[in-house]
Design a protein around this nucleic acid. Structure first.
Length: 421
RNA sequence: GGAGAGGUGGCCGAGUGGUUUAAGGCGGCGGUCUCGAAAACCGUUGUGGGGGCGACUCCACCGGGGGUUCGAAUCCCCCCCUCUCCGCCA
């Protein structure tokens, strides 16, 4: 969420910034709500001050045996007026908050201008696409012939966009989870295993609610939400906390299943493991000082890239343009792995700096050593990595002409086998 | 699911209708003393918001939300969370 005072005082700046992302937003109504809010506060606080002073007076009068009935009558009407103003204030506050919750973050100045995915500039690439002496297969053909993923039975059990991993497939999923967590913890990320059902407050804090409710799975009673990413519970670890400057930066890594409705993506990636309602992911989350957050974004992205490097998977890094940037993010790098079966790069990690946008919604602050008051932290997160898509990448990049799949060197201690055949 | 106990400032802990503008202690910070330190003593100590150029001033916050009252940390109602016991359960 953006700072109300900042928006009010920089209407032009905010409108232009949001236009760069493709949002046309009228801010006049907001500014007048803010004026209303302050007018109500001025009046109600004056009345409260009067009530405090007079109530004290009434107490003294009564103690001394005096007559306070006139003052009591006056205060009765003052209290009624306060009550009415409080109602108005609550209403105005709610409207202000709703407006702000639906405003996206402002892109960082280094984010390139663009309309959509096709305008995302490539920043760098690592490795080379492997040369095949045969026609490489799609991962779902590889997986089904090796009998390590069963899509038909998964759809019997749960429906479309679910998968049943079997044998070495299930083992591969588990091996990747452990490999990634071990790499991340060795770099100083603290491993956590959070709840995967969360409450509405947590979903609001990271920006999924209220705007993206249709993308989420929700339980009926009690009302809880299945997390679409570990970003949600892990960022909420420090919701409504004031951290010490010396605690920062804080790094977490978490493995969780993730759940997404994928509403509006009918017909996209209907085959295979790319787009599932349930998938596994290892996430990286950082809480940092504002002045460090862009260096920390570079570091976070490199940490995610290193996992692909250790797995020997060719990839490229793109920076999301203004039109493709996620709602809460100020800047995002996507890491796209090369998939020879599809002949294209696919997103396998998305690393973002949210600046203070989530911290303000979640009320995560820190106290500086040499300064009074508090500042909002900056939050960042990125996949390190999406496990299902890593399985896809390994199957497609390490396939052999005979249909077997070689296990990357770094993963063998976790897999126990060198080849799936 | 049932019964009970509890939730007060960074921490501990008093406070059951009006000098509590939340006692007292611990911790933190500053100072006095000291060669230096400890001890002792003195002072200070949160968050958010409104108004003012400013010294400053006002309002709110005792788990959350309602209510009673001129006035609520304190009384009433609902909810959340923690702990103990019982039941159930991986």
């Amino acid at each position: 969420m953006l700072d109300a005072r900042f928006v009010r005082e920089n209407v032009q700046v905010v409108r232009d910034a949001l236009r760069r992302r493709g949002y046309e937003i009228e801010l006049g109504g907001f500014v007048s709500l803010e004026e209303q809010r302050r007018a109500i506060i001025r009046e109600v606080e004056n009345l409260r001050n009067r009530r405090n002073v007079v109530s004290d007076e009434i107490g003294r009068l009564k103690k001394g045996g005096g007559d306070a009935s006139g003052l009591i009558a006056e205060m009765k009407s003052v209290s009624e007026r306060i009550k009415a103003l409080d109602e108005d204030l609550k209403d105005v506050d709610a409207r202000i908050r709703e407006f702000l919750l639906n405003l996206p973050n402002i892109p960082h100045e280094s984010v390139p201008e663009g309309r959509d995915e096709s305008d995302n500039p490539e920043v760098r690439r690592w490795g080379e696409p492997r040369e095949f002496g045969f026609e490489p297969l799609n991962h779902w053909d590889i997986a089904e012939s090796l009998d390590i993923v069963d899509f038909d039975r998964a759809s019997k059990i749960a429906g479309a966009r679910f998968s049943l991993m079997k044998g070495e497939g299930a083992r591969l999923e588990r091996a990747l989870m452990n490999f990634m967590l071990d790499m991340n913890t060795s770099k100083g990320y603290k491993e956590v295993f959070p709840p995967i059902l969360v409450n509405r407050e947590s979903m609001t804090a990271t920006g999924q609610l209220p705007k993206f409710a249709p993308d989420l799975f929700r339980t009926a009673d009690p009302e809880l939400y299945l997390i679409p990413t570990a970003e949600v519970p892990v960022t909420n670890i420090h919701r409504e906390e004031i951290l010490r400057e010396s605690d920062l930066p804080i790094y977490y890594t978490a493995y969780t299943p993730c759940f997404r409705r994928e509403a509006g993506s009918y017909g996209k990636d209907t085959r295979g493991l790319i787009r599932q309602h349930q998938f596994n992911k290892v996430e990286l989350v950082k809480f940092v000082r504002p002045e460090d957050s862009y260096d920390e974004l570079e570091g976070l992205t490199r940490d995610a890239e290193e996992i692909l490097q250790r797995l020997g998977l060719h990839y490229r890094v793109v920076v999301l343009c203004t039109g493709d940037l996620g709602f809460s993010a100020a800047k995002t790098y996507d890491i796209e792995v090369w998939l020879p079966g599809q002949g294209r790069y696919r997103e396998i990690s998305s690393c973002s700096n949210f600046e203070d946008y989530q911290a303000r919604r979640a009320d995560i602050r820190f106290r500086r050593e040499e300064k009074k008051g508090t500042d909002f932290v900056h939050t960042l997160n990125g996949s390190g990595l999406a496990i299902g898509r890593t399985v896809v990448a390994i199957l497609e990049n390490y396939q052999q002409e005979d249909g077997s799949v070689v296990i990357p060197e770094a993963l063998r201690p976790y897999m126990g086998v060198e080849v799936i055949r």
